[in-house]
Nucleic acid binder design. Structure first.
Lengths: 283, 283
DNA sequence: CAATAAATGTAATAAAATTACAAAAGATAA
DNA sequence: TTATCTTTTGTAATTTTATTACATTTATTG
């Protein structure tokens, strides 16, 4: 965790005066790194030693060290911030913002991934005799995508964006099946019900959703895709991308676990698709 | 250019003593950022003011400023590279690689976006009386996603991943329609044929695909999604994400062009969905 | 409402960086 | 070469900056 994130997360546990310092820094971190301890103390309306103590509380050696670490945490490395699109943005502006926000979401997701759960999920998928992907609305296309990928393997795959179909599939699932539920909010009633049904059949219920959430409660394994997002007017964008990448990770793990033989099969599939394509070097 | 690169490139044009300072810093930049001007001067066997002058020569305000910038340049800056997954990668390893590669793809795509074409595309979509999204295989889910998003507006939207359906829709299109063709390679024969048909009806044919490619040749507007990719055993991953983000950009432009009234409508849709969800603060 | 602990500030001190100026070192032209 | 000028470097003083020691205030607990 870099210093800026640490500051954000620990601001609550700071004393009154130290919080004043934190506020000033958070208001303009870029400016803060060029201020002397005296200037900063004045801005925060505290004494200089308070600023110094504040630095030590954050685990740094002193004020100069703090500035150094702060400067590093401000560098383009985690520069991807969730910036809101405004009505009067130029095309260039909002394009940049959307790309940045998406990358920010991926960054956050990667950092918060629970590798243990991920391995559990891959393990479950590898042992499954049938895999189903369920999503509704915006998450339907994510489930659709997952199906596309898993179709290339020999395990039967099902995808549905229809509540009745999903319900039937859930009822007919068994202990060796994996059902993957994809939902941005984790609050879609229909999906929660279906997950509960699947759970009763002792199938593995894998959730790619917000955690905690009602849907997460119904799952045997949850991969959290929660991303700090603009739940504003614009529809879920970034979190859906994060979900897709999580699925990429799952399928990669699945492929690797199957070993080199499987990769040969994949190659065969690729080749069989070639006939339906124009030759690369023809035009 | 960051400070460390600058230092490397200007070391030749420095004076004798200043070069000594440069050498000491380059030998251990990470260590240098924690040294005082006195320590550094001693190590370089020069006087303190020489170190200070050295900093100014490099275009910084002084020694503390120099250290700050040096610290920043030492941070892993936008290092997102397309790294290949290996058979013996740990879960953590390949997860990191996939996230990084995806971010790298987004970075590349953003850099190569042609804003003019993007605006043409948004313009065309805004004036369309009907919008269709076509994709096959892995690109079908991208088209599916696009439909989901555009369904929230009042312009009729069609999505299909079926060649016959697509063909019929293309034949029945007209000059006020926009047909969006999504393809990773731009070489899928069926899709090219359908695009050609659509072209003849004078509809706007928008391609989200590789450029140049046979499909791109059939399009009136092409948004390039070509990403340097692992066409290896693993299936297209990152390019698909880039396509989705391009669609996010399109819909955002579309929404903004419709103005604030439209945003109210979106809010209404969101609220109407609320009933099908669990309350956020209940469970 | 004491007694104690925690937080904060004041003032002194120490450390660090910068400046002004002087001394070398090097370049240029008679 | 040497006188003159420019550039480079160092010394010492000065200023700025950060830290420490200690006093004061504020909060907490029995």
């Amino acid at each position: 965790m870099n210093l800026l994130e640490k500051l954000h997360s620990e601001v609550a546990s700071l004393s009154k005066s130290e919080r004043k310092v934190a506020d000033v820094i958070l208001a303009d971190p870029q400016g803060a790194i060029h201020k002397s301890i005296a200037t900063l103390a004045q801005l925060a309306e505290v004494s200089e030693p308070t600023v110094n103590r504040f630095c030590r509380t954050l685990g740094t050696k002193g004020y100069p060290d703090f500035k150094l670490l702060l400067a590093q945490s401000l560098v383009k490395g985690t520069p991807f911030v969730n910036r809101h699109v405004e009505q009067d943005d130029s095309t260039e502006d909002f394009t940049g913002k959307i790309f940045e926000s998406t990358m920010a979401a991926l960054n956050v997701t990667r950092k918060h991934i629970d590798i243990d759960r991920l391995e559990q999920a891959i393990e479950a998928l590898s042992n499954a005799t049938k895999i189903s992907f369920f999503g509704l609305g915006a998450s339907a296309s994510v489930a659709h995508d997952a199906q596309n990928k898993f179709l290339r393997f020999d395990t039967p795959v099902l995808f549905s964006d229809d509540v009745m179909m999903q319900r039937m599939a859930a009822i007919n699932s068994g202990p060796t099946d994996v059902l993957v539920f994809i939902s941005h909010t984790g609050r879609t009633k229909a999906l929660c019900e279906i997950a509960a049904i699947a759970r009763q059949t002792q199938a593995t219920v894998l959730g790619i959703t917000a955690d905690p959430s009602p849907l997460a409660d119904e799952c045997s394994i949850v991969l959290s895709s929660q991303v700090p997002e603009d739940t504003d007017v614009y529809m879920p964008m970034a979190s859906r991308i994060a979900q897709l990448v999580l699925i990429d990770v799952l399928i990669t793990g699945y492929t690797l676990r199957r070993g080199p033989d499987f990769r040969d099969k994949l190659r065969l599939i690729k080749e069989s698709l070639r006939d339906s394509r124009f030759d690369k070097h023809k035009g």
